[in-house]
Design a protein around this nucleic acid. Sequence first.
DNA 1: ACAAAGATGTAGCCTTGGCTTCATTTCACT
DNA 2: AGTGAAATGAAGCCAAGGCTACATCTTTGT
Lengths: 164, 164
Amino acid sequence: MKNKAPRKKRAAVPAEAVAGAEQSAPDLGAEAHRFSQTRSARSAEILEDYTELIADLMEEHGEARITDIARCLGVTHPTAAKAVARLKREGLVTSRPYRGVFLTEAGAAMAERVRVRHRIVIEFLKAIGVPAEIAAVDAEGIEHYVSDATLAAFSDFVRSAPEV
Amino acid sequence: MKNKAPRKKRAAVPAEAVAGAEQSAPDLGAEAHRFSQTRSARSAEILEDYTELIADLMEEHGEARITDIARCLGVTHPTAAKAVARLKREGLVTSRPYRGVFLTEAGAAMAERVRVRHRIVIEFLKAIGVPAEIAAVDAEGIEHYVSDATLAAFSDFVRSAPEV
DNA sequence: ACAAAGATGTAGCCTTGGCTTCATTTCACT
DNA sequence: AGTGAAATGAAGCCAAGGCTACATCTTTGT
Ligand SMILES: [Mn+2]
Ligand SMILES: [Mn+2]
Ligand SMILES: [Mn+2]
Ligand SMILES: [Mn+2]
């Protein structure tokens, strides 16, 4: 006796229902497309946090050291070092052995974009009544998943509702 | 000639400045704590999406098949199968070879929480003026990073601002 | 009944992001 | 100038989440 469970007809989800199937291309369905977008945002998340943090450290202390980066992020130094190696490979930072980490133009540009986003998200959360400490935590995650349209909506809201 | 770069004093970031250092415990600084929280949210992200999707498929078609899950998420079936194995390990679903996937009580509970959050985030984004399709994409990522406090703020906002 | 097609499983590869442990380099201070 | 502590690097482990390729089971239809 094995596998006696009743089995409905196959193709419970007709391919066409889920696949937008409008034209050519790999054409994932709308559903799948949504998740794909989120996945790619997720893979950029760490790069964004690092560039932002490096910019902050440079501004505050004139340099960004692996140890400081690691401490700020709450990870061990080898983890930070490995991430920096990836940033380097992707052309976002430069570094030489035993010296600090420096943003390239591309890295600085990313940092600036991320900082703006971060600020807007935090201000927005506070504006709708989220306590500052909680807003700080939530913004750290949310910031990587807001599209330009959503960011604009956030920013408009903050401007139009100065006080509560 | 090597490593001639000027080097500032060490301890650019005095440990106390970054470590909350109020009491005992591993006591990461506030900064580090923020990122830790986000990291743990990130690791739950996939579990949440799977349980939610499984619940949706069961509701719509009476069953959740690996293939359908994979297609909806836009991943290959081995990827979905591996994720289901993890869900199983974590006690969120059950499954038998060549049969579908079923939520356990814990899984169903998670799915329900996630669905509520998803709905609120989407309604909220639309309420502040984000176009529906964009809101759908952004919500897919944001939903995993909203605390209860933020969710409450979102929900309050939607209730108090029915039309625009 | 059976064969083709579709669904599922299995194995194995890659990258990322964590970690520990140990070696090496630099720096600050005596 | 010398030395000990701190910072950095390097090696290697693990889990997660992607993938491809191939094997096996189930269903559907003839
Ligand atoms: Mn962040
Ligand atoms: Mn940030
Ligand atoms: Mn999601
Ligand atoms: Mn969702």
